Lab assay of single mutants.
Amino acid sequence: MTEYKLVVVGAGGVGKSALTIQLIQNHFVDEYDPTIEDSYRKQVVIDGETCLLDILDTAGQEEYSAMRDQYMRTGEGFLCVFAINNTKSFEDIHHYREQIKRVKDSEDVPMVLVGNKCDLPSRTVDTKQAQDLARSYGIPFIETSAKTRQGVDDAFYTLVREIRKHKEKMSKDGKKKKKKSKTKCVIM
């Protein structure tokens, strides 16, 4: 069974824990209790493949930012979460993405942009803004509501699919490099 290491990042209060708990335990946590770091595991079937999701729910508070490099190193894919009623959390996505790329030393890291709290009427981040940002990053965008469960499975499952595509691409690139290195030079 394939294991996928997913990391949920975003500013404090955007609903990272609520999304994760909704996926794992099928219930909505409405009281806000700032996370330092929590880890969850769940076995699911995605596109006919049974897999184990190892999900790291991270601290959004700035005082825990020193811990970010460590979990970013171990993560295979990242859910970059903002709240649709919090423009600052949307603007912060850029910083999370840049930090992930720096730590992973790669421009090509599996990510999904997630606009959470889409059940709320007080939207300050337009869907088109988020779609445009995701398009500019070359990553999928999904709106979710941890409260109603809308888009929750889709967000995590899409990230797994992005990781699969990335692994497939990397193995193809690896095979191309191996083929090239088999060419021999004969000096007579």
Rank of each mutant, 00 (worst) to 15 (best):
M188G: 14
M188W: 07
C51H: 12
I163W: 06
K172F: 11
K101H: 06
I84T: 14
N116D: 13
L6H: 02
K88S: 14
N86Q: 13
A11K: 09
F90Q: 15
N86G: 10
V160Q: 14
S136Q: 13
T87H: 06
L113S: 03
A134V: 10
I24E: 11
V125W: 09
I142C: 08
L52D: 15
L56V: 07
V152Q: 13
I84G: 15
L52A: 13
H95M: 04
A134K: 02
M170Y: 12
C118F: 10
H94E: 11
D119Q: 12
E37C: 00
G115I: 08
E37F: 00
Y71M: 00
L56A: 00
G115H: 08
G151T: 07
L79T: 03
I46F: 09
G48N: 08
R97S: 07
D92N: 09
R123S: 12
F78H: 01
T35W: 00
G60T: 00
G60D: 00
V45H: 10
H95C: 08
I21A: 15
V125Y: 11
K167C: 07
Q25M: 08
A59R: 00
D126R: 05
K184W: 04
D154Y: 05
V45D: 13
E3Q: 12
K88P: 15
M170A: 14
G48R: 09
Y71E: 00
D92V: 08
T87N: 15
R41K: 10
I139L: 15
D173K: 13
A134F: 06
D173N: 12
Q70C: 08
D47I: 02
I46K: 08
T183M: 12
K88I: 07
C51V: 13
D108V: 08
Q150W: 05
I142M: 04
V160I: 07
G138C: 08
F90H: 07
R97H: 12
C51R: 10
K182G: 14
I187E: 08
K88L: 13
L113P: 01
L79D: 05
N116A: 14
Y64N: 00
L19N: 15
Q150A: 12
G13F: 13
Q99M: 15
N86V: 04
L159R: 02
E3P: 13
L120G: 14
E162M: 06
Y137Q: 07
L52I: 10
K16S: 13
A83H: 13
I187K: 10
V44Q: 14
P110T: 04
S17P: 02
K128A: 04
M188K: 13
Q22E: 09
N26C: 14
D33G: 00
E91W: 03
K175H: 15
G75K: 01
K5D: 08
H27P: 02
A83W: 03
S17V: 01
G48A: 07
K184Y: 01
R149Y: 13
S106W: 09
K88V: 14
K172T: 15
M111C: 05
C118T: 11
N116P: 04
K117P: 03
H166D: 11
I93G: 04
Y4G: 10
D154S: 07
D47L: 06
S39V: 12
Y4V: 13
A59E: 01
G75H: 06
R135E: 09
D173W: 12
V152L: 11
K42D: 10
I187S: 13
K182F: 12
T2H: 13
E162K: 08
G174V: 06
M111I: 09
Q70W: 13
S145V: 05
I84F: 12
R102K: 15
S122M: 08
I84P: 15
T183W: 05
E76M: 07
K16D: 01
Q25I: 15
I139C: 09
K128N: 06
E49L: 04
E76F: 06
I24F: 08
D38L: 00
K178H: 13
F156S: 02
E49G: 08
K172D: 12
P110Q: 02
H27G: 13
I142Y: 08
V114S: 02
K184G: 12
V81C: 10
G115K: 04
E63S: 04
S89H: 03
T158P: 06
F28P: 02
A155K: 06
E168C: 04
R97M: 15
M72W: 00
E62Q: 05
M72E: 01
Q61H: 09
R73G: 03
L19H: 11
P34H: 03
F156G: 01
Q129W: 10
D38R: 00
S145A: 15
V14A: 11
K178Y: 10
V29L: 12
K169T: 14
Y96G: 02
D69K: 01
V81N: 05
S89M: 02
Y32C: 02
Q25F: 02
K172L: 08
Q99I: 03
Y71H: 00
I84H: 14
L19K: 15
C80V: 05
V109Q: 03
K172A: 07
L23T: 14
T148A: 15
K177R: 08
K176S: 13
P34W: 05
Q131C: 09
T127M: 07
P110G: 02
A11E: 13
D132E: 06
K175V: 05
E31A: 09
K177Y: 08
V186F: 12
L120K: 13
A130H: 08
G15P: 03
G115E: 09
S106R: 14
T124G: 09
T87F: 15
K165P: 03
D153P: 07
R68D: 01
V114Y: 03
Y40R: 01
L113E: 02
T50Q: 15
A59N: 01
D33V: 01
R73M: 13
F28Y: 08
V81I: 08
R97A: 11
V125L: 08
R135W: 09
I139G: 08
V29W: 05
S39A: 15
H166C: 08
V112N: 01
Y4K: 15
S17G: 01
R68G: 02
C51N: 10
E162T: 11
R68K: 03
D154N: 07
E162L: 06
T50Y: 14
M111W: 03
S145T: 15
I93Y: 11
G75E: 02
A66C: 15
D57M: 00
K176P: 15
D173F: 14
E31P: 04
S17R: 00
D38V: 01
R123D: 14
F28G: 01
N86M: 03
V81F: 06
K104W: 15
R161T: 14
V44I: 14
V112F: 06
T144S: 09
V152G: 10
T2Y: 11
L19E: 15
G75L: 01
F78T: 01
G174S: 06
T58H: 00
D69R: 01
V114K: 01
E91D: 08
F28H: 04
K128S: 06
S181L: 14
K101D: 04
V186M: 07
G15N: 03
T124V: 08
L52G: 13
N86E: 13
G115S: 08
I163R: 05
K167A: 08
T58S: 05
Q131G: 13
I187P: 15
G138Q: 03
I36V: 08
D92Q: 04
T74D: 15
V112M: 09
Q99A: 10
E168I: 08
C118L: 09
I187L: 10
K88A: 09
K179M: 14
G138M: 06
E76A: 04
K176Y: 14
Y71D: 01
D57T: 00
E107C: 09
G75M: 03
Q43S: 13
I24H: 07
L133A: 08
D54P: 03
F90K: 12
A18T: 05
Q131N: 10
Y4F: 11
C185D: 15
E37T: 00
Q131W: 07
M111Y: 03
T144F: 09
M111T: 03
L6N: 03
K182V: 09
G75P: 02
C118N: 12
C118A: 10
L23K: 08
V7H: 06
H27Y: 12
D126G: 09
V109S: 04
L159T: 05
I36E: 01
G60P: 00
L159G: 04
Y64P: 00
I55N: 04
D33S: 01
R123P: 09
K165I: 13
E62C: 03
K179N: 04
G13A: 11
R135A: 05
Y157S: 11
S17D: 01
H94L: 14
V109F: 09
E98G: 04
T58K: 00
